[in-house]
Amino acid sequence: MEKLPIDALWEKYIHYAHLNSAFDDRIGILDGKSSAILLFSEHKNKYYRNEVSVNFLSDLIEQINFNRLFSLGYGLTGVGILIDYLVERGVLDESSIDIFSDVELNISKFLANTGITDISLASGLSGYGIYFLKRLKREKYNTQSYNLYLNQLDSIYNTLEKCILSKDGDSYDISLWYGRSGCLLFISELAKIPQFSKRCETTCDHLRAGILESLADSRFSWDKMQAFFVMYQTDRLNSLQTELNVFFGEFIVSASTKLSELGIANGALYSLFVAILIETKGTYFAEHFLSSIYDGIMLLLKNRSPKELFPYDNQAKAIPIGIDGGMSAVLLSLWSIDSKRYLWLNFFGFFFEEAKILVTNEG
């Protein structure tokens, strides 16, 4: 597979993103400025990593008001996870987490007062759960904050369980951002907390059974690829390997010629998911099919201008930058394939067990 020309392509597209996302009215990680900050923070050039990302974050914080959406994908919960991530990356210091304390209090009030029943990662309970699970993992046991986060997670899980096991629970699609796969991802991580391990078993089994049933129709779709990846990542006991391996071969072959159907952003994420499966599951036969999508994306990036691939949206005052369909999905995915570093996916609840990325002083 061709080596990703980081210096040439990243500079070309990052510069375009810098110029055309500064005034983005959207703050979300899936659609707006948070994704631009995440992208800049991963750049090896310290100007983008330490200055541009922090300046964008300062502007974003000034945009915060409590009439904004609270969700992980499009609102303030995602901003909180972003700040936490930048602290982990060494871009911000530990004290930066304190600037989000008032927002966190309002997120808790929102959950208590709205009776939200959306189960999704992007706009629902699973996204809020990911946030509080990350906060819990930063705290020491039996502290006041730890117990507050534990209670918040208990409340979120109780509602999720009722929604998932209800007659309408299977009406959600199986996608990562908007459906049952994102919910499975969160609950699988929650099950690692001793207080939840037994309670989560029935819900996880129900979600897996429903997703497997949907995967049995071997016709490829992007939703199915997302679900398949989550199923593999959460099948820690390898109890579903036989079934998943059958689907994997069918999906890889059918998707390898569908870059035009996937689009460049989903195609890049697809390539990343396959690359991770090759590395973690030893599915090396998929190398050829990964290359076909990857090489197609590389040709597009080289032969087309950023303006052609990511045209400016006058209404949003920005280019499509988000992880859901935008430039950040493309560049972060290709960078991860090249570097074999996936920590930014932990933003969404994957919790890859990987050493912290060493920050260089290049640039």
Rank of each mutant, 00 (worst) to 15 (best):
W10K: 03
S305L: 12
F310D: 04
I321S: 06
S333F: 04
Y48M: 13
R26H: 05
L60A: 07
H15N: 08
Y131S: 01
S291W: 07
M298G: 03
A36F: 12
I107L: 08
W344F: 15
N158T: 14
F348H: 02
R180N: 06
L300S: 05
A191L: 01
I99G: 02
P311A: 11
I6Q: 06
L277Q: 04
F23D: 14
K109M: 11
N106E: 01
K258E: 14
I61S: 01
L9T: 11
I116Y: 05
S108K: 08
I264E: 03
E2D: 07
I130P: 12
K134T: 10
G267F: 01
L343C: 15
F285I: 04
E354M: 11
E104N: 05
E62W: 00
N106P: 00
F56A: 02
L300A: 11
A286L: 04
E261L: 10
L105E: 14
D118W: 05
L165P: 00
P311D: 01
R49L: 14
L240P: 07
D295I: 10
G75I: 01
Y16V: 00
N20D: 00
A265W: 09
I14Q: 07
I278P: 03
S96A: 14
L176K: 04
S166P: 11
D223W: 08
K109T: 12
V54L: 03
I29W: 02
Q63K: 15
L190V: 10
S34M: 04
T234L: 08
L82M: 04
G322C: 04
I116E: 11
L331A: 01
T77E: 00
A355Q: 11
V330I: 05
K307H: 10
A329D: 06
L207K: 06
H15G: 03
E2A: 12
H15L: 11
L153H: 02
D223M: 14
S126D: 01
K167I: 10
E243K: 15
D24S: 05
P306L: 06
S126T: 03
L185F: 02
R304P: 00
V79D: 09
R304E: 05
S34V: 13
G326I: 07
K44E: 09
F56L: 02
R89N: 06
R68M: 08
N55L: 13
T280D: 13
G127C: 11
Y47H: 13
L184A: 10
L259A: 12
N55Q: 10
Y141M: 08
L105G: 10
K140D: 12
L300D: 13
N238L: 14
Q226E: 13
G127M: 07
I97P: 07
N113W: 03
Y312N: 12
L272P: 04
H206D: 00
L148P: 00
Q315Y: 07
N106L: 06
F289V: 12
N50V: 02
A22F: 11
E139K: 08
L150W: 00
S260I: 14
G263N: 09
N238M: 13
I337S: 08
L277R: 00
I276F: 09
